[in-house]
Structure formats: C-alpha cells, structure tokens
C-alpha cells in the first residue's frame, strides 16, 4: 500500500491483471464460443463467460483479506445504489445506479467500483426479482465502475462535473446499452446477424437514451456533494486511497 502512495499514477499490478483479463481474455473466450461452438447455445455460453469474468474479482478481493472498514464502505455505496433504484421504481430506466457506481469507482478505485456495481445489480434483484438478466446487469454496472476507476487513476477522468457527466452519458449508452442489448438478442436467435443486432439496438435505443440522460442528471446533482462527503470520510478516518 505504501509504494502506491509514492507512485500514484502508475496502475497497481492487480488492476493491470484484472484489466488484462477483462479486455483480452474474455473477448477471446467469446470468439471461441461463437466460432468454435457454433451449434451450441449462445445464451448459456455468454452467461458462463459473465460469471467467469466476475470470479477473478471475487478471488482477488477475498485473497487479500479486506479490512472491516473497506468492506462496509463498499456495502454502504451498494446499498445507496440499491435504494436509489428502488426509489425510482415507477420511472422505467430512470435510475441513479450508474451515477453512484461511477462516483464509487472514482473515489475508491477500480476494484471497489466493480464490486459496488456488481453487488448493487445482484442485491437489487433480490428486491425486484432474479432472472437470467441478473449476471448481465451485474457485469454492466461493475465494468462501468471499473473503467471509471482506471480512467481516473490514469488522469483521463477528472472529478469535475463536466468530465463525469460526459463519461456517465457515454458509458451508459455504449457500455450498458451495448452489452445488455446483445444479451437480449442472444436469448432468442440461433445466429447473430447484423440485421438482428441492428433491430435490437434500434428498439432499445430510447430506453438506453433515457438511462443515459438519467445518469447525466444524477451525476450533475450528486457528484459534487457525494464526492465531497466520500473524500471527507477518507481523510477523517484514513481510509485506503486507491
């Protein structure tokens, strides 16, 4: 932990390993699923891949025996995200979850961002109903928080409203919408075709747009006070700096 303080902009080896897994190993597995196991069920394979992407996070996290304070901060942020999703249950897609996950990633690092997102997706479905969509939501929320953490560490994402809002809108539209729509396409086609993909994206576009606008609005309202509070807690109790 101490050497991270000295060389702050450098990514830790753990973060590097995890991003390698997500950005390289998973796409390769997906390609194998699509090109080698042509006859098999896409949906089933993709579910397996998603679960398999989340395993390294869990293992790394368990292995380093996290402190009680660290655990509980992640739990609080995930609970706020779940409560936020519950509070806006009457407005479809208009949810603050992505905004809170991004703030978590920026303040507490990529790994915490992923855990907050995945946990929020998982637990909120205990209130709204589990289904084959759960792993997809967990993965999408988690990866948005993870990338937010990495971009912040690299210095490409600032703690300013403008920068957070741009990242929030783009990531919700492209990452969340992009992955969730592929998931729903895989459920009912045997062969992924360009027309099918286009049709799914076109039909889902407005839902994703509403979701992205909601993320931007929530980031606009929440980012400054929430980051201030989190920074204060970090300074007051000397919590880990990512």
């Amino acid at each position: 932990m101490s050497d991270q303080h000295i060389t702050k902009p450098r990514l830790s080896r753990r973060t590097l390993f995890a991003s390698l897994l997500i950005l390289v190993v998973i796409p390769i597995t997906m390609c194998i699923g699509i090109f080698v196991l042509q006859d098999r069920k896409y949906y089933f394979i993709s579910l397996l891949i998603l679960l398999y992407t989340m395993i390294p996070f869990a293992m790394v996290f368990e292995k380093r025996k996290p402190q009680a304070r660290e655990l509980i901060v992640i739990a609080v942020l995930a609970a706020i995200a779940v409560a936020g999703r519950g509070a806006f249950f009457m407005l479809p897609q208009f949810k603050p979850v992505v905004a809170i996950v991004i703030i978590a990633g920026v303040c507490f690092g990529a790994e915490s961002g992923f855990l907050v997102g995945a946990m929020a997706g998982f637990v909120s479905n205990f209130f709204f109903g589990q289904g084959p969509w759960t792993p997809w939501q967990m993965f999408c929320f988690g990866i948005i928080g993870f990338i937010a953490g990495i971009l912040f560490q690299k210095g490409w994402l600032k703690k300013s409203k403008l920068s957070l809002c741009i990242y929030g809108g783009v990531s919700t539209l492209l990452i969340y919408g992009g992955i969730i729509n592929i998931g729903s396409l895989m459920m009912f086609t045997p062969h992924i075709t360009w027309e099918g993909l286009l049709a799914v994206y076109a039909s889902g576009f407005w839902f994703d747009m509403v979701h992205a606008i909601a993320t931007v609005i929530f980031l606009l309202l929440l980012s400054r006070p929430m980051i201030e509070k989190l920074e204060r807690i970090k300074a007051k109790y000397g919590l880990i700096d990512p």
Partner: peptide, 20 residues
C-alpha cells in the same frame, strides 16, 4: 467460500430497509 463478499451482501440487504 466467499466470506467477505457474503458479508457485504448481507450488509447491503440489511442497509436498504435501515436507510428507509
């Protein structure tokens, strides 16, 4: 198998009604 994550999970479940 996953003591820390299960703990987070149970805490989140508890926090939601508590915050309400």
């Amino acid at each position: 198998i996953l003591p820390a994550l299960s703990l987070i999970f149970s805490m989140v479940l508890r926090f939601v009604p508590r915050y309400a």
